[in-house]
Design a protein around this nucleic acid. Structure first.
Lengths: 144, 144
DNA sequence: CTTAATGTCTCTAGCTGCTATAGCTTCAAG
DNA sequence: CTTGAAGCTATAGCAGCTAGAGACATTAAG
């Protein structure tokens, strides 16, 4: 049985975050020691590792809640889990395309900085002039 | 002079968001009509377009506040603006590398989905098994 | 000119996903 | 047996909005 600190150390999830996950029902209410301290078993450690990993992949707590309830019912079809993952993938691809476009724009900005007075600064100018920049339309094209 | 609705329509920033920006001091307090409605001029429209664009580029409101105060003092050197943009670029590059790795992992997940019972589902399994996944170390390597 | 629809006003509360603080109790090492 | 770390609860705060209530303003149609 692990204390919350050990659980935190072995999953990389901070202590207050673990308590928060319990509070919102992502983790079950922990057993308590005689002195009222939370105690965790291997099962909860796995569950928390799952949550952490999914968070790193950008899944929302809501999506994770769904995935967990799916994995709690192993007889159901996995198509729902697959759908969640696919939706997440679409999201990630969209963010990726968007970020790539923004990176290009930022690079243009810093390259063109004259190093002189603000009034000559491309950074400020580009940010103020939307027409110089990559449009949503271009981003949409890049995605598809 | 524009009402808040027109300003919203022409910048794509929602009405409550404009009021919020005023409240936190990103926009100056607006002039008011006889009937106490906010009125905006071209200058504020430009400022709001600047803010919107910078937000799309992922700048925090704090960074935008700095950029705005720089552009309000056009005699200063633009190296500060350049530094902010460069920091933002580093951030974006890091997020980009991270997202690319996550995309690869998600693709593996959905491809391997057996379409059958949850107990056979790779989506759930991969999420639960951190050792199968791309590590922070690998992401760091990808960045540099 | 009136009426109805739409727009705007202020204020408050809520959202996600945590993080920090205060003031207390419990535990483990020396 | 003491002391310092780790735990507890409860509350409040962060970014960056968003939504709702209930009142006043403006505009367009009839």
């Amino acid at each position: 049985m692990l204390t919350i600190g050990k659980l935190s150390a072995s999953t990389g999830v901070k202590v207050p975050t673990i308590r928060y996950y319990e509070q919102i029902g992502l983790l079950p209410e922990a057993e308590r020691s005689a002195g009222n301290q939370r105690l965790y078993d291997r099962k909860t450690l796995d569950r928390l590792a799952f949550i952490r990993h999914a968070r790193e992949l950008g899944f929302s707590l809501e999506a994770i809640r769904d995935l967990l309830s799916l994995s709690d019912n192993p007889d159901h079809s996995c198509s729902a889990a697959d759908a969640i993952a696919r939706a997440q993938l679409v999201e990630v691809e969209s963010r990726l395309a968007r970020l790539a476009a923004l990176k290009a724009e930022l690079e243009r900005m810093v390259v063109q900085c004259s190093g002189n007075r603000i009034s000559d600064c491309r950074v400020i100018e580009v940010l103020g002039n939307h027409s110089l920049c990559i449009t949503d339309h271009m981003i949409e094209d890049a995605i598809h």
